[in-house]
Design a protein around this nucleic acid. Sequence first.
RNA 1: AGAGAGUUGGGUGAGUGGCUGAAACCAACAGUUUGCUAAACUGUCGUACGGGUUAUACUGUACCGGGGGUUCGAAUCCCCCACUCUCUGCCA
Length: 423
Amino acid sequence: MLLVQHIRDHYDQVLLGLNKRNLKNAATALQQVLDLDDLRKSAQTQRDQFQAEANTISKEIGTLMKEGKTAEATAVRDRSALLKTQIKELEEQHEQAEAELKALLYTLPNVPFTAVPAGKSAEDNEVVLSHGEIPSLGEGKLPHWELIKKYDIIDFDLGVKIAGAGFPVYKGKGARLQRALINFFLDQALAAGYVEVQPPILVNEDSGYGTGQLPDKEGQMYFANEDKLYLIPTAEVPITNLYRDVLVNTSDLPIKNVGYTPCFRREAGSWGAHVRGLNRLHQFDKVEIVQITHPDNSYATLEEMSAYVQGLLRQLELPYRVLRLCGGDMGFTSAMTYDMEVYSAAQERWLEVSSVSNFETYQANRLKLRFKGEDKKSQLAHTLNGSALALPRIVASILENNQDPDGIRMPKVLHPYLGFDRI
RNA sequence: AGAGAGUUGGGUGAGUGGCUGAAACCAACAGUUUGCUAAACUGUCGUACGGGUUAUACUGUACCGGGGGUUCGAAUCCCCCACUCUCUGCCA
């Protein structure tokens, strides 16, 4: 959520940023924010004055009663009653302005960082770099949804029986590959200084608001109605919310956490020709890295996290490219995002396997995640996160890129985790 | 799921409807002193939103799990909700 004070102080910059996102009526919305805030303030100032008077009167009455001056006390009481109705009126004004302001702020996305390119869709994203060679497979190359049947390692039909489309069943070497990747990713993160956490995979409403999935993406999360809990779409939600309502010391920063969780996404309305096989699932596994940093360091950290994720892809021997997302394609809460895509050689297309973002104070403001600076004033920290990595599309590209007539070659780094080197 | 108990500042923990933004202790921070360490002593020490100021100072209001009510006045009384703990039940 954007800070009103920030909008006030950097109006032009915020407006420019929101325009970069192609947000309609940005200027109107911002002006409305300021108006509502003014309204809120003036109502509060007046209410506080009346309340102060009422408080004084109450004390007077107490004294008068003690001294037995009942008649005088009753007289003062009338004034108090009048104040009370005025206070109530102003209170309502204040609450309404505040509620409207909050609702409006919830609809405003984060302001893109200056380095974010303008643009409307994925086509306008900027390719920052590419790495690795795109393998040229001969005739008879199979897409991963054929390979998994051929080698009987992932079964979608069984998943349909148990749950529905988009819930695969991993079997035999397929299951082992999942476990190997998870352990490999976790071990790498540990080596890079991340502290592992195993969070709940169902979260309450407050957590959903904390990281911005609510109210923006309400319909995209599975909801356990009986207990009012959401199944997490990403470990970002529970891990970042560990720090909701937390005031940390500057010396505690940066905080680095990594966690493996299954992720659940309803993906309502996003099924089509390009989502066969592992390309899009309702349930998938992901290892997520989260950092909480001092505002001065967050962009250096973003680069560090990007480099870290690229290191994983190199070790897995996958050709990849890094995109800097344009304003129109960036997530609602992000100030800048890098997407990492691997090349899937049978499908002959790039697949997004990681998204690394800096949210600046956007999440921290909702979370009330602050640190005490050297001037002993508390200020909002910056939050970042990234997939490191999401499994299904990694699996898809490993299977497709490494296929040969004799089977599928496994990346070297996984051999110790797998206990085999081919499928 | 049933019954009971509870929820107060960073922590522990007092608190008869006005003298309580809240005792005390601990922690933290600053300082004094004994050669250093330890100890002792003194002081500071919640958050949010306003007013005010170049910035301080100063100042108002709210907050004792959340919401509502009674009252001139609520941490304290009443109602609803959430959560935690204990026992019983169930269970990996």
